[in-house]
Computed example of a mutant assay.
Amino acid sequence: MSGLRPRAAGEYAWSPDSAWLAFVASDDTEFSSVYVWNVAENNVTRVTENSYNAAEPTFTPDGLFLYYLSDAAIESGSASPYGARGSEPNVQNEQRLMCLPLRAGFACPFHGGDELNPHGGVAFDPSIGARFKTKIHFPGIEKRAVAAPFVPKRAYAGLKVLGDGRTFIAETKDDVGWYLVVVDVVAGTFAPFFPDPIATIVSGDGEVVVLATDKGLALFSARAIAMAGRGVPQEQLLHSAQLWNPPPAFTVSVNPRKEWMQMYDEAMRNMRDAFYDPNMHGVDWAATTETYRPLVYKMTHKSDLRDVLTQAFGELSVLHVFISIRDDDE
């Protein structure tokens, strides 16, 4: 990945055949857009408009669609801009779920059912992504994205695709807190599933979902969660989970010095990859990394790493570089 040097990038997602890497990065407009990197040809192309923010791209298992979150249709949360106590500009209901067909002529599978089969057929064949290469037709791609009309405009986080690609999960919030929702893009349904998850993890094949809760870890079948959008009672689905609690003697061993060295290596690597000048202001960054490494071996507390990195980053002679080290108890 040495040829990939995006600016302020994050939220990476691989295509099923690992030929493309989707990610979010900002440009001179300061909006975040979705880009794709062609691994074989080592080039990067923007696939969403740069006049709004796009976030959390994810490929469907068949490699035919790219879903992401967009704030292209924000709404004002201010009742009035007038008066001495007029509120600052703010927005609400800011994100929509977008479907981007990667091939010209393909249509997003919203409402794929009919009277005889209200939930539609299997819209995606996950094996396609493994058997055939993902192809992207770029002309006009920014105009092909379509908003899922049945997904309300809200703030979302943690967009993930499950199973064969027709079911998505994400977290959204109301006045009380965050909760997990299930979206079926074929049946056109949006249903709440679980309140206040601590974390949500999806297996690599999209078939198992792990919810971290205050009662432990709950393991769900992706097929079971998919039924939340098809009329199956929520209580029934929750009872299908397998609950795992760490034993009372559950411990994790940590070697502080190895941890500090890993933090140092990651910080130096991140600076190398994210610095605006690929030439690093003429500084031999590999040599600089090794020059300051002996100081890490002499550290007696994690906070000492701030001093080491401050000296190392100072070699770049650049302003506005800040280093923050969290306390051990955080």
Rank of each mutant, 00 (worst) to 15 (best):
M1A: 11
G3Q: 13
R5L: 03
P6V: 08
A8W: 10
A9F: 09
G10F: 09
W14I: 06
S18C: 10
E30G: 00
E41G: 10
N43V: 11
V44M: 14
E56Q: 15
G63P: 07
L69R: 11
S70T: 12
R85P: 01
P89N: 12
Q92H: 09
Q92K: 14
M98G: 06
C99T: 10
C108M: 06
H111Q: 11
N117R: 04
P118A: 03
G120A: 07
F124D: 02
A145H: 05
V146N: 07
A147I: 02
K153A: 15
R154L: 14
K160M: 14
K160D: 12
K160N: 13
G163V: 09
D164N: 13
G165L: 12
T167V: 15
I169P: 11
A170M: 15
E171D: 10
V176M: 10
V186C: 13
F190C: 05
A191R: 11
L217M: 08
R223E: 15
R230L: 15
G231M: 06
P233E: 13
P233G: 06
Q242W: 05
P246E: 00
T251G: 01
V252L: 01
Q262T: 03
Q262W: 01
R269D: 11
R269P: 00
M271A: 06
D277G: 00
H281E: 05
H281T: 01
V283N: 01
A286W: 00
E290L: 03
T291Y: 01
Y292S: 01
T300Y: 00
S303R: 02
L305N: 00
E315R: 03
S317N: 14
V318F: 10
H320W: 07
F322E: 13
I323H: 00
I323L: 00
R326N: 01
